[in-house]
Design a binder for these strands. Structure first.
Lengths: 223, 223, 223, 223
DNA sequence: TATGAATGAGTCTTCATTCAT
DNA sequence: CATGAATGAAGACTCATTCAT
C-alpha cells in the first residue's frame, strides 16, 4: 500500500535503473514457459524458478499475474508483431508484399522461438489469454493495406478471384507459424522426420506464389 | 470400488442403455468448454455444471480428470479425425485427394465445432494436453499415402518441386482449421467482418488447387 | 423410509431367513479389512467389494457405517472375547487360570485371524473405534476374578508381590496378541524369520509360569 | 516451486533459525493427534489447527501428507527408538540388558507420550502407516545383540530354554508400551483405576527378572 | 531489492449415503 | 434383494498474493 513501492509507479516500467534485468529475465522465462505449456498451465512460481528468483519477485516487478501478461503482450509480442507487419506498408505489388511478410515471420520465429506457440494458442485460439490484450493494438493499417492490395489485383483480373483477401493474413500464418509450432513433433513423428525450417520457407513461398501470381482458370483472353 | 462402477467398465462403454446419457452429456460439455477456454483453463466443476450434474458425477463416470481426457480423445476426437483422414486412401490422384481432405475437414467442423480450437491448442501446440493421447493413434497410413502421392507426382514433374510433401498435411490444416478457429473474431474484428465458412472453403481450395495442379513452368522472363 | 425396509427391523437381525449370508460375508470382509488396514483406513466400498456385493448393500444390511461397526463388535468380537474369558471363572488356582487364558487366546486367534490386529489397534489404542463399543460389555466378572485371585495369592505370600494384579490381563495380552499381531513381519524381518505360533505359546507360558509360580526374592523362610 | 521453498531443503532442516518453530509445532501437533486418533483418523487440517496455523502451512513445510509422515518417522520416532535401543550394546549380561531396556522405554514414554500409541497402532499393526518407514532403519544390531545374548545364556543352561530369544524384544514392548497405551483407560475402567506408571515399571521388571534370572530347574514332580 | 512465512480461495478427489427402479 | 445413478460434505493439495523484515 505504500506509495514508495516501485511497482506502483506504473506497469511495465522497470523499477530503478539499476538491476533491471531481473524483470527482463522474468519476461523471458514467462515467454518460454508460456510457449511450452500454455499460459493457463504455467504458474507464477514456475516462471520465477526458471528466472532464478523468488515468486515474490514476480509480484514485485509486475504486481500481478494479469499485469505480467500485459507486459508480455506489450513489451514482447507486440514488438515482434510490428516488426513483421509494418514493412508491409512499403510494398506496392502483392507478391513481394506477401513474400516479404512470410519471410519476416520466419525470421521473427528464429529470434523469438515462442512466437508460433503463443500465436496459435493464446492469440488465435478462442479464449486465448493474449487475444484481448493484442486485438486492439494490432497493426491494422498494414493488414488493411494487404487486403486492399489483393482486392485491387483481383479487380484487375490479375489474381484468382476465389481467394478471399481478408483470409490472406491467416493463410500466411497458417503456412508459417502453424508448421513451426510443431517443430518438436518433427523429431518425434517418423512421418515428419527431417523437415527443416528451410523446407517450411520454401513450401510456403511455393504455395503463396503459385496462388498469387497466376490466375488459376485461364479466362478467355478477350473480354 | 465396486466392479459395477461405470469408470471400471472401460472407457467408452456407457452404463446400461437407459439413462446412460449423463456420460455423453459430460463429454459434450467438456468438448465445448475445452474449445472455449482450453483444457488447462477448464475445471471439472465447470464441465459438470454445463452438463447439469454434480462434479462428483465426473468422477463417477470417468474416475479421474485424466481419464476424462482419455475418453474425450478416444471417443470423440479420434473418431472425427478418422472420418476425415481414412477416405484419403481411396483417392489416387493428388488433387482430388487434397480437395476431398479439405472438404471433409470443413464438414467435420460443422458437426464438431470444437474441432478447430482443440486441434490448434491441444494437439498441434507444444504441451497440448491431447497431443500425447492422439499422436500414437493418428491414421498414419492415410497421411503416408498423401505424402507418397505428392512425392510421386513431383518425381513425374507434375508438381511444383518446392512443395514439401511432408508439410502438406499441416498446410491443409493451416488453410482450414486455423481460419475456422478464429470464427468468433470474424464478428469482432472489423477487418474480418463478413467472412463466411464458404469463403474459407473457396479460399482454401483455390490455394491448394493452384499450387497443386499448375505444373510450375519456369515463368518466361517476359510477359 | 418405508416400514417394510428390512434393515429397519432391528440392528443385527438378518433380513428374512433366506439368503442371510450376504450379511455374514460382509461382516467377514469387514473384519479382514479392518485387521489389514485399520477401521479408519477401510471404506465401505472396499468391504462391499471384498464381499462381492454393491456398496449399497452395506447400507441395506447395516443402515450405517457406525451400525456396521456395532455389528462387528457385538456379533463377532464380543463373542470371541467371551469365549476366551468366561472359562476363567472356573479356575481356582492362579497358574492354571492364567495358562488357560493364554491358551484360549492363542486358540481364538487361529479361528479369528483378525483378533490380534483389531485388539491392538481398535480396542487397546487411544481412540480405537471399537473401544467404546466393547468397553461397557467386557466380561468384567472374569477379569475381576483373575485380579482377585492373584491378589489373594500375593497376600498368601505365594506370589511375587511386585506383580500388579490389575495389569495381569494386559500382560497376558502383551505376551500373546501383541506378538501374533506381527505375524506378517516374521516373514519379512530377517531377525524374526522362522518364529512360529508355537514359539509364541511356549514363550508366553514360560514367562507367565516362571513369574507366577516362584516368588522371586527368596524371602526369609521364617517370619 | 522456488528453490527456497522449505520443503525442498530436505526433511529435518528447519528454515532459518528465526521463527522456524512452526515446523516443530506441526510435528508436535501431528504426534499428539496421531497418538490420540491414529494417523488414518487425523486430517491435515486438524494438525494445522492444533499447531495454530493454516492447513496450507503443512504443505509449505512438508509438501505432502506423506512427507509429513516421513518427517515424523525420521525426526521424532526414530530418535526416540534409537535412544532406547542403542545402549543395549553396552550391556553384557542379559538381566541388566533387559532391565535397562525396559527402563529406558518407560523413560522415553514420559518424554514422548505419543510413543506407546504410535508404536502399537502404526508400527506393530498390520498396515501401520509408519511400519514401512521405520522397518528398514531400526537399530537391528542392538536387537541382534539382545537375541544373541539370550541364546548364549540359554546354551549355558542359565536361562529357561522355553523362552524364544527372538520374541524377547516384543515381550519387553508388550510389558511396557502395551499397558502404557491404555493409560486413559485406567481412569475410566473401575477395574484398572489407580494403576500408575510405577506399577507398570515394577510389574514388568518383576516378570522379566523372574523369567530371566531363575534358571529353570525342572520342577520336581513332588512337593 | 529480496525473501521466507503465511494465507484464502479454489480445484481435484473420495466417500458415505440415498433413492428410484 | 439388488443395483446404478446421484450427491453433499469433507479432505488433500495448489497457487496467487501479501507482508514483515
Amino acid at each position: 500500500m505504500s506509495p514508495a513501492h516501485p511497482a506502483r509507479r506504473g506497469i511495465g516500467r522497470p523499477p530503478q535503473g539499476a538491476r533491471a534485468d531481473a524483470r527482463a529475465l522474468l519476461l523471458d522465462a514467462a515467454l518460454e514457459l508460456f510457449a511450452e505449456q500454455g499460459i493457463a498451465g504455467t504458474t507464477v512460481a514456475a516462471i520465477a524458478a526458471r528466472a532464478g528468483v523468488t515468486p515474490a519477485m514476480v509480484h514485485y516487478y509486475f504486481k500481478d499475474r494479469e499485469r505480467l501478461l500485459d507486459a508480455v503482450a506489450e513489451e514482447r509480442l507486440l514488438k515482434a508483431i510490428r516488426a513483421v507487419w509494418e514493412p508491409v506498408m512499403e510494398s506496392k505489388a502483392v507478391v513481394p508484399m506477401v513474400r516479404g511478410l512470410a519471410q519476416r515471420i520466419l525470421q521473427a520465429t528464429e529470434l523469438n522461438p515462442w512466437l508460433p506457440s503463443l500465436w496459435l494458442r493464446e492469440i488465435v485460439s478462442e479464449g486465448g489469454q493474449l487475444r484481448d490484450r493484442l486485438i486492439r493494438v494490432l497493426p491494422f493499417e498494414s493488414v488493411r493495406h494487404l487486403i486492399d492490395s489483393i482486392a485491387a489485383a483481383q479487380r484487375r483480373g490479375a489474381l484468382n478471384p476465389d481467394l478471399e483477401p481478408r483470409l490472406m493474413m491467416l493463410t500466411v500464418i497458417g503456412l508459417t507459424l502453424l508448421p513451426l509450432a510443431t517443430i518438436r513433433l518433427w523429431q518425434v513423428l517418423p512421418i515428419l522426420k527431417g523437415v527443416t525450417r528451410e523446407d517450411v520457407a520454401r513450401h510456403a513461398e511455393a504455395l503463396l506464389v503459385s496462388a498469387l501470381s497466376a490466375p488459376v482458370r485461364r479466362r478467355p483472353k478477350s473480354a
